[in-house]
Every structure is written in structure tokens, then in C-alpha cells.
């Protein structure tokens, strides 16, 4: 039987090597502490909830710090101003803002806002962040937290692999939970 990965990722040998060699995420950079104060981090969590369509509360504080640091690794002052503006604007939206309204807000913010919002949503959803490799057009991925990626909340009929799913044979029944 095939054991080939069916991943849609366009991986290369360099990806693999870089990926496998990646050190634990938190050790790989100097943290950017611009959002370290608690109320700003609350705002970041709320903006993240809006973009992801998934309610998140203060229990996400540790993961939020990790994701914020991942997003702002090596950020310039200009980047930081744009991040702050993005979070301010998105967090001003109501909790039930739909995709059209979020996109409209991003459009009004001008160039770069969409890109940053997409990156932010992707990192929350996937628990990984793409990184360019030095002196190369290739990228690698750093895994921030696979188990706590929002995709597992969105897909509540499953759970991250390597996590016990329940009693033997649960899989023969249709999923009956609510979305």
C-alpha cells in the first residue's frame, strides 16, 4: 500500500531538511514584545477570533504570545505599525462579522493589510508558519503548535493525529456533533 504523502505542500528536499532541522520555535528568535501588555494581547486574541471565525478567550494567552512572536519575527518598525493598525481595525468589528465585512475593512486599510490578515489566519488555523530559506527562493515551515491549531476546532469531527480518539470502533458511527 502506498505510504506516499498526499500533501498539497510543494515540498522539496530542502524543505524536508530545513523542516527536520528546525529548532524548537521559541528558541529561534528574539521575541518582539510590542504587544506584551495584557490588554493589547486581549485585543490580538479578539482580532484573531474575528479573522478565524472561532471564538477565543483568555485561555489562549500562551498560544497567542507564540503566534504573535512568530508573526513579528524580524519585523521592521513599519511592519509593527501595520500589525498594530490591523489589529486595531479588525478588533473594532463585531464578533459575528462575516467574510465580506472583514474583507471590506481590510480593503479600506490599503496595501498589505490583506496579506497580513491572511498570514495571521493561516498561522492560527494551521499552527505552522512559512519561512523563506536564506539565500534561496525556497521556503520551509516552522511548526508552532500542531495540536492547538484552530483547524481541529473547525473540524470538530476529528482531532489532531496522535491523540486518542475514543473507544474502540467509534469511527463506524456518523459524527453527530454540531458545527
Amino acid at each position: 500500500m502506498s505510504v506516499k504523502s498526499r500533501s498539497k505542500l510543494k515540498v522539496t528536499r530542502r524543505h524536508v531538511i530545513a523542516g527536520m532541522a528546525s529548532v524548537p520555535f521559541m528558541a529561534s528568535f528574539k521575541p518582539n514584545l510590542a504587544l506584551a501588555n495584557a490588554s493589547k494581547m486581549d485585543q490580538f486574541i479578539y482580532a484573531s477570533s474575528i479573522l478565524c471565525g472561532i471564538p477565543m478567550d483568555k485561555s489562549y494567552i500562551q498560544l497567542s504570545h507564540q503566534i504573535w512572536q512568530a508573526l513579528t519575527l524580524n519585523a521592521t518598525d513599519k511592519d509593527m505599525r501595520e500589525w498594530t493598525k490591523l489589529i486595531d481595525k479588525v478588533s473594532s468589528l463585531p464578533a459575528n462579522a462575516n467574510s465580506a465585512r472583514i474583507n471590506k475593512t481590510l480593503r479600506l486599510m490599503g496595501r498589505g493589510a490583506h496579506q497580513k490578515a491572511r498570514l495571521m489566519a493561516k498561522v492560527w488555523y494551521t499552527g505552522r508558519i512559512a519561512r523563506p530559506l536564506l539565500n534561496s527562493k525556497l521556503t520551509t515551515f516552522e511548526v508552532i503548535n500542531y495540536d492547538e491549531a484552530n483547524v481541529w476546532i473547525a473540524c470538530d469531527f476529528t482531532k489532531p493525529p496522535v491523540t486518542c480518539g475514543g473507544h474502540f470502533g467509534y469511527w463506524q458511527h456518523p459524527y453527530t456533533g454540531k458545527v
Binding site: 505542500l9 505552522r128 484552530n150
Partner: peptide
């Protein structure tokens, strides 16, 4: 599932439509 999230976000979806 992660690849589905990336694709949906690339398509411009956010919020409840993304989920």
C-alpha cells in the same frame, strides 16, 4: 485539514465562512 484552511484563506475567506 491544514491544506484546506490554507486554500480557503487564499481564496479570501475569513470569519464564519472560513470555518
Amino acid at each position: 485539514p491544514l491544506d484546506e484552511a490554507d486554500a480557503a484563506i487564499d481564496e479570501g475567506l475569513f470569519g464564519p465562512e472560513l470555518k
